[in-house]
């Protein structure tokens, strides 16, 4: 699978976590493009919810996210977070 397709599939799985774990409205998530901000505006997560999202990501992708990586820039948008997940997955291969 090419990297773009991989990113698309990762973002899709991220969207599923947003709906199932964080109860973000399905319409909001489905209408979100990869550049949709996650915190505050856009998806509208707050700092507490980002931790729930990370727990969901760890479970879904089988990776471990260190505290040091939990900076606000990680949640810039779905693309940034998806790219980060892919880099963690690549590092564990």
């Amino acid at each position: 699978m090419n990297p773009e397709a991989n990113l698309e599939s990762t973002i899709l799985r991220l969207k599923m976590i947003l709906i199932s774990k964080l109860h973000v409205s399905k319409t909001t998530v489905e209408q979100s493009d990869p550049d949709q901000p996650l915190v505050g505006r856009g998806i509208g997560l707050d700092s507490m919810e980002t931790l729930t999202l990370i727990a969901g990501i760890e479970e879904e992708f089988g990776i471990s996210v260190p505290d040091e990586d939990l900076r606000i820039s990680l949640f810039t948008d779905l693309r940034t977070l998806g790219t980060y997940i892919m880099s963690k997955l690549a590092a564990t291969e």
Partner: peptide, 16 residues
């Protein structure tokens, strides 16, 4: 959401 920011603490800003 932008209107709320800075007026109330982040944890009070609507998520939905």
């Amino acid at each position: 959401i932008d209107h709320c920011r800075g007026k109330i603490a982040d944890f009070k800003i609507p998520s939905v």
